[in-house]
Design a protein around this nucleic acid. Structure first.
Length: 186
DNA sequence: GGAACACACGGCGACTACAG
DNA sequence: CTGTAGTCGCCGTGTGTTCC
C-alpha cells in the first residue's frame, strides 16, 4: 500500500461526513477537484463504488456506509491518542510498535497512521503484520489490533468498530501511565 | 381573484480536461 | 497530485396560463 493512500481515506471520511465535495474541500483546505480525484482513485484501486454522485448531490453507497462506520472510530481513537501524547510531551517523538493482521492494517491502521505521521514526523511506527496471535507483552509491542475473541485477559482493549469485532489492544505496561478507556474518544 | 399546473431560467455543485 | 477553467445537469424560483 502506498503512502499516498492515507490521505485518500481522510478525504473519503471528510466527504462522507460533510455530504459535499465543496464543503469537505473547504474543511481540508484543498480544492474540490482534488477531492474528486482522490475519491475516484480510491474507488478505482479498491474496485468498489463508495459514493454515488449526481450533478447536484451525493450519497454513500452501502459499501461507503460500512467503510465510514469502520474507519470513523479508528480515526477518532488516533486523534485522542495524539492529543494524549501531546499532553505528555511538547514534541512527540520515538518509536511505536504495533502488531496487527492484514485486513485491519489495510482498512484501519494505514489510514490513521497517515494523519499521525504527517502531524508528527518525529514518530516512527513499526507495524508488524501477521495472521497469528503474536504475544503483545512478550514481543514488547506497544499496541495491536485483534478480533474480539482474540483479546486476552491481561490486555487492555478498546473496541474500534461497532460492526466489525476489531479492538485496539495494548500491554498493561503501555497503559500504566495513561488513562484507561472503555471506548474510543469522540 | 385565487389556486394549480407547466415552463423557462439562473444558481449551485460535481465532473473533466489540461497545465504546472 | 493539485488548481483552474469550462461544461453539464439537477433543483429552486419566478412567471405565464388555465381553470374554478
Amino acid at each position: 500500500m502506498r503512502r499516498g493512500d492515507f490521505s485518500e481515506w481522510a478525504v473519503f471520511i471528510a466527504v462522507a461526513e460533510e455530504g459535499s465535495f465543496t464543503r469537505a474541500a473547504a474543511k481540508l483546505g484543498l480544492s474540490q477537484s482534488a477531492l474528486s480525484y482522490a475519491v475516484r482513485m480510491l474507488e478505482q484501486r479498491i474496485g468498489v463504488r463508495l459514493i454515488s454522485r449526481t450533478t447536484r448531490s451525493l450519497s454513500l453507497t452501502e459499501a461507503g456506509e460500512r467503510l465510514l462506520i469502520s474507519l470513523r472510530p479508528a480515526f477518532d481513537h488516533i486523534d485522542s491518542e495524539i492529543a494524549a501524547l501531546t499532553a505528555l510531551r511538547d514534541k512527540p517523538a520515538g518509536t511505536i510498535r504495533i502488531t496487527t493482521f492484514r485486513h485491519a492494517a489495510q482498512t484501519v491502521l494505514w489510514p490513521v497512521l497517515s494523519k499521525l505521521l504527517q502531524n508528527y514526523p518525529d514518530i516512527t511506527v513499526e507495524v508488524h503484520v501477521d495472521e497469528g496471535l503474536t504475544d503483545i507483552v512478550a514481543e514488547r509491542f506497544d499496541a495491536g489490533i485483534r478480533m474480539g475473541e482474540q483479546v486476552q485477559k491481561d490486555m487492555v482493549a478498546v473496541r474500534i468498530s461497532p460492526d466489525v469485532r476489531m479492538a485496539v489492544v495494548g500491554s498493561p505496561a503501555y497503559f500504566a501511565n495513561r488513562p484507561a478507556r472503555r471506548h474510543p474518544a469522540t
